[in-house]
């Protein structure tokens, strides 16, 4: 009832006029399609209380007072698609998440439903619980394997710091083998995290701890999310480690999401450093664009703008930007290149 009254008022105040979306961005004199590989959705009541408070406090007041309705308006597929339309992003990938201590749970089943809202534009990355692996590994692996068979599922999402699992944990051979056998890349959160209860020690955040697994599974593709960014101190963190790993291992991909947001990198200097480092290392054929949206209204579009500015600042050519914004996504996940 309250939401029914508030939504029209918000719409009126925020001026959300309906316009036909225009896909793609202009860069270097060319029109380029954009795919956002890092998007979240889920249900507010599957986020732990401490994180709900954290998120609510970061919404512009008074939207934090109605955090649940504010969040759920943008955390379902329809809300995500609205943000993609606003940003001109043609396709996006939704993450399942099993991190009950920190960012909460977005189940594989939920993601599967959301992907079906627009299967031409939405993909899914499945995930699995790691918190009772010694007793529950087989069931979790079976569920993940079944999920990866579902329409639209193109990869696996893990977040060691959020899931409280060391990056060098030796118990997950079967998981890496599954990724290699199915050809589904594994996305890994790297770096610290601002969320309550995150495991912030280096063993959980520093991708250097993951190198033995990268080396042991050359047929599995690993995407190092956030480039090891230090979200606590707003510093580049393990950027050099990530870039060096990508330079040394052909099965390492890089994804510069979230680190360049207005909150995490107010001046944009760190995102520029990151894009410059990736270009300097000659690994732009393995950089995949993502935002980590939707976070807040307008975030997906804003993050894309900041990323384009960083690429421009780092001297990217239109072809390099095209690779980062869409072609590398198609390459790593084995899908058709995105249309404009």
């Amino acid at each position: 009832m309250v939401e029914r009254m508030i939504t029209p008022l918000l719409t009126l105040l925020l001026g959300c006029a309906e316009e036909a979306p225009v896909y793609g961005v202009s860069f270097g004199g060319e029109r380029l399609p954009v795919v956002d590989m890092h998007l979240h959705q889920g249900e507010w009541n599957l986020i732990p209380e401490s994180t709900r408070r954290f998120l609510a406090s970061r919404f512009p007041a008074p939207l934090g007072l109605i955090a649940e309705s504010t969040a759920e308006g943008s955390l379902n597929a329809e809300g995500v698609l609205e943000q993609l339309d606003e940003a001109g992003v043609i396709q996006g990938a939704l993450f399942a998440v099993y991190a009950p201590r920190t960012v909460g749970v977005a189940t594989n089943e939920y993601v599967a439903e959301q992907v079906l809202v627009d299967p031409e534009r939405l993909f899914g990355l499945g995930s699995l619980r790691l918190d009772d692996w010694n007793n529950n590994a087989e069931a979790q692996l079976a569920d993940l394997a079944a999920t990866l068979e579902k329409p639209g599922f193109i990869g696996i999402k893990l977040a060691h710091a959020h899931q409280h699992v060391r990056l060098d944990d030796p118990r997950f051979d079967a998981l890496w083998s599954l990724a290699a056998a199915t050809g589904k890349p594994v996305y890994l959160h790297t770096g610290s995290s601002p969320f309550p209860n995150t495991a912030q020690d280096a063993a959980y955040t520093d991708p250097a701890y993951f190198e033995p697994i990268i080396a042991a599974y050359p047929d599995a593709q690993f995407i190092l999310g956030h480039l090891g960014y230090d979200f606590i101190n707003k510093e580049v963190g393990a950027l050099d480690t990530c870039v060096e790993l990508a330079a040394r291992y052909e099965n390492v991909w890089l994804e510069p999401s979230a680190l360049g947001s207005a909150g995490s990198d107010p001046t944009g200097a760190n995102l520029l450093t990151a894009y410059s480092a990736m270009k300097g290392a000659g690994v732009l054929d393995r950089v995949v664009y993502g935002s980590d949206g939707p976070q807040s209204p307008g975030f997906v579009a804003e993050y894309l703008e900041r990323s384009l500015a960083a690429m421009e600042g780092a001297g990217y050519t239109a072809e390099e930007a095209r690779a980062v914004l869409s072609l590398n996504f198609a390459a790593v996940f084995g899908v058709e290149p995105a249309p404009l």
Partner: peptide
């Protein structure tokens, strides 16, 4: 200004 110093709409 609901919860200073945070921003309020």
């Amino acid at each position: 200004w609901f919860d200073p110093p945070g921003f309020s709409l």
